[in-house]
């Protein structure tokens, strides 16, 4: 049974981790794009969750 909880925990953990990873990656790219377009901060302001 404990063994199963290891698998369950890993599954939920990986799901949350990849969601957060994708959001952070999006936000980093948004900031880079915003900085490059010189319209500073627009990407960061519309940041949203993550």
């Amino acid at each position: 049974m404990n063994d199963h909880w290891l698998f369950i925990g890993a599954g939920y953990g990986i799901t949350w981790a990849s969601l957060c990873w994708y959001l952070l990656r999006l936000r980093r790219r948004e900031r880079m794009a915003a900085a490059a377009s010189g319209r500073g901060g627009e990407g960061a302001r519309a940041g949203g969750p993550g």
Binding site: Y22, L23, L26, E30, A33, A36, S37, G43, A46, G48
Partner: peptide, 28 residues
């Protein structure tokens, strides 16, 4: 819903990046 959110946000980023690409590397 999460897909819809990430999709639209990713699309907005892609649109900004395309704009940058088309305006040329010198600008900004």
């Amino acid at each position: 819903l999460a897909f819809a959110y990430l999709w639209l946000r990713r699309y907005r980023l892609a649109a900004t990046e395309l704009e940058l690409e088309l305006s040329g590397p010198e600008e900004g």
